[in-house]
Design a protein around this nucleic acid. Structure first.
Length: 592
RNA sequence: GGGCGCGUAGAACAGUCUGGAGUGUUCGCCGGCCUGUCAAGCCGGAGGUCGCGGGUUCAAAUCCCGUCGUGCCCGCCA
């Protein structure tokens, strides 16, 4: 650390400095004035140290308030016996002040710089520069920086080239909504901000780069969530002449390096690999949280002969009956109704619940419709013990597992992120069906199928070479082996119903590039924000983004987005709609 | 676009269900006291458009409607 006007970082003053004169500078965390003696804590980026002063000798101490920026010259000494503070890294020593100088006073704070105080997030964001002084936020910033540097180091050591790709590109309306930027020089035309460097990194493979990575800002203009902002940061990578396993192993190294750097833990490698079908069957989501079991059990085989109408119908309609054992827990009629409502919100028509009673019998509104044999089979299949609550859904396969997967997450998920459970989900379907029955890609349209003939004959069940990385139930990112054969690429567009003209217009430039000796290639991208969020035990990426936006896309500090002058709009060839003009007038902004 | 929650002093809250004077707590702020504290302590004080608008009522922080802000979620997010 370059100290500048200081000799020491506040948090680095140590027993070895006793009897030496030091200069520290930072912020007054707290003043404790006892009349004849006063203490104040000086905090800088390195930590905190206590300063002791006689207020008569140093009347300036009387002025010090929270978050004043100060410089202190003084002598380091051992704290008197019994007054050491084990909570503080510098708690064995203190600085006896020789000189105290206010570098800059601070107004009364909008909130206290203290991790123990929960402050409304809007107020925090309005004064983010103060919020970032809080130890937790400062730690998050540091962790993020260390994670990215560990990741960079990993890729550098593996011989990857860091290449920057443009952020003003053309819009491709598939997938997420693009963030658009109007062109002044070509009025009426728009750039888009990249949703990812996808096609550029593939072009870099065609360019002979072979090993590429980038820490890239990406933009998707969709609604916000705790784990989604319009702009976010991804580690983006791609390699030529390799297959899936090389990609996964490389990404694992980078993720493990970030974990090691932030938490000092060794992540066992390789990560478990589960197929998409497997995770859907067992956990009902494509990003399962493997920190807990509560697996979905298939009960269909045990109920083939059942007389219970709901189960019978589901099975007859080629559906399935599945259940989860959520363990022993409080179960009341009200609780059952609540959970049933959750299940319905997840798409279920209903939910069957059963509680295992002390005598081994099943308490359930539908118990009387099930034979002894069926009840026993259910208990056995679900390893049900005394007091356990069993939840059962009967529906088409996808709905049944997704409902139970949603309930599993809601009922079983541990708080915090003390333990880490990484996994790979592999063998995703190549396509999926939209609500309107049309077929769409499940990853992106440049993903390679595992088998081209299979893709042509049974597109609905074709497997792709796409894979996701999941950590504690959070989707960190995804990747795939790409299509490097222009014919295959054209066939995929065809299956997707994008006709040749359209494909040519949108992606012609890319399809042409594929025609010049494209090496087999594939890669991955994972969200730095989400990774650091989990590693820091946060539940929102806003806690690891220095200046995030609220759910409505607003930065409460700068006020962005804002109205711009009519002249700026005119230069861009942009006019506000009547609705937008009305909003602008309502906001009190002048409209010429 | 939709569902649910929240909005009371600079901050965090209680009060709202069951209407009755802006009633209270902690922190911060201001003044005073205090020589070993570290979420210091003690005494005193200031500080309020109960988000905003409308309605019901003799009376609204409280009930109703609308609206804005904010959070979580659904849709959306290849």
């Amino acid at each position: 650390m370059v100290q500048g006007m200081r000799t020491h970082g506040a948090g680095t003053v140590a027993v070895s400095d006793i009897d030496t004169t030091v200069t520290v500078a930072g912020w007054v965390q707290k003043r404790r004035d006892h009349g004849g003696i006063a203490f104040f804590d000086v905090r800088d980026a390195s930590g905190v140290v206590q300063v002791v002063a006689d207020p008569e000798e140093h009347p300036v101490v009387d002025e010090l308030k929270m978050e004043y920026c100060v410089k202190v010259i003084g002598t380091v000494r051992r704290r008197p016996e019994g007054t050491e503070n084990p909570e503080l890294a510098t708690g064995l020593v203190e600085i006896g002040a020789d000189h105290v100088e206010v570098l800059a006073p601070a107004k009364t704070l909008p909130f206290m710089i203290d991790d123990r105080v929960e402050v409304d997030e809007r107020v925090r964001l309005q004064h983010r520069y103060l919020d970032l002084r809080r130890p937790r936020m400062a730690a998050n910033l540091r962790a993020r920086s260390r994670a990215t540097s560990a990741i960079r180091r990993t890729f550098d050591e593996l011989g990857f080239l860091e290449v920057e790709t443009p952020t003003l590109i053309n819009s491709t309306p598939e997938g997420a909504r693009d963030m658009l930027v109007p062109s002044r020089l070509r009025q009426g035309e728009f750039y888009a901000l990249p949703q990812s460097p996808q096609l550029f990194k593939q072009l870099l493979m065609i360019s002979g780069v072979e090993r590429y990575y980038q820490i890239a800002r990406c933009y998707r203009d969709e609604d916000f969530r705790a784990d989604r902002q319009v702009e976010f940061t991804q580690l983006d990578m791609e390699g030529a002449f390799w297959d899936r396993d090389e990609v996964l192993e490389t990404v694992e190294k980078a993720l493990a390096a970030a974990v090691k750097e932030i938490r000092g833990e060794d992540v066992p490698l390789p990560f478990p690999r589960l197929t998409w079908h497997d995770v859907m069957n067992r956990y009902g989501v494509d990003k399962p949280d493997l920190r807990f079991d509560m697996e979905i059990v298939d009960l269909t085989d045990h109920l083939m002969e059942t007389e219970f109408g709901v189960f019978k119908t589901a099975i007859e309609e080629a559906g399935t009956v599945r259940g989860i054992n959520v363990g022993a827990r409080e179960w009341s009629r009200a609780r059952a109704d609540e959970i049933t409502d959750v299940a319905k919100a997840l798409g279920a028509k209903g939910l069957v619940w059963m509680v295992v009673e002390g005598d081994g019998s099943l308490r359930s509104p539908i118990a009387k419709f099930l034979s002894e044999t069926e009840q026993d089979a259910i208990k056995k299949a679900m390893s049900a013990e005394n007091g356990d609550v069993l939840l059962i859904a009967a529906d088409r396969w996808r709905t049944a597992v997704e409902v139970l997967g949603g309930l599993r997450n809601r009922l079983g998920r541990p708080e915090g992120h003390d333990e880490l459970a990484f996994l790979w989900v592999i063998d995703f379907p190549l396509f999926e069906e939209d609500d309107d029955g049309s077929i769409t890609f499940s990853h992106h349209p440049f993903t390679s199928p595992v088998d081209i003939d299979e893709m042509r004959q049974h597109p609905e069940s074709a497997i792709s070479k796409a894979y996701d990385a999941v950590l504690n139930g959070v989707e960190l990112g995804s990747g795939s082996i790409r299509i490097h054969d222009p014919d295959v690429q054209r066939q995929v567009f065809e299956i997707l119903g994008i006709d040749a003209d359209v494909a040519q217009r949108r992606f012609g430039w890319f399809l042409e590039a594929l025609d010049y000796g494209t090496p087999p290639h594939g890669g991955f991208a994972f969200g730095i924000d989400r990774l650091v969020m989990v590693l820091q035990g946060e539940s929102s990426i806003r806690e690891v983004i220095p200046f995030p936006k609220t759910q409505t896309g607003v930065d409460p500090m700068t006020g962005a987005p804002t109205w711009v002058e009519e002249g700026q709009l005119a230069e861009l060839g942009v006019e506000l709609s009547p609705l937008a003009r009305a909003r602008r007038e309502e906001s009190g902004e002048e409209t010429p």
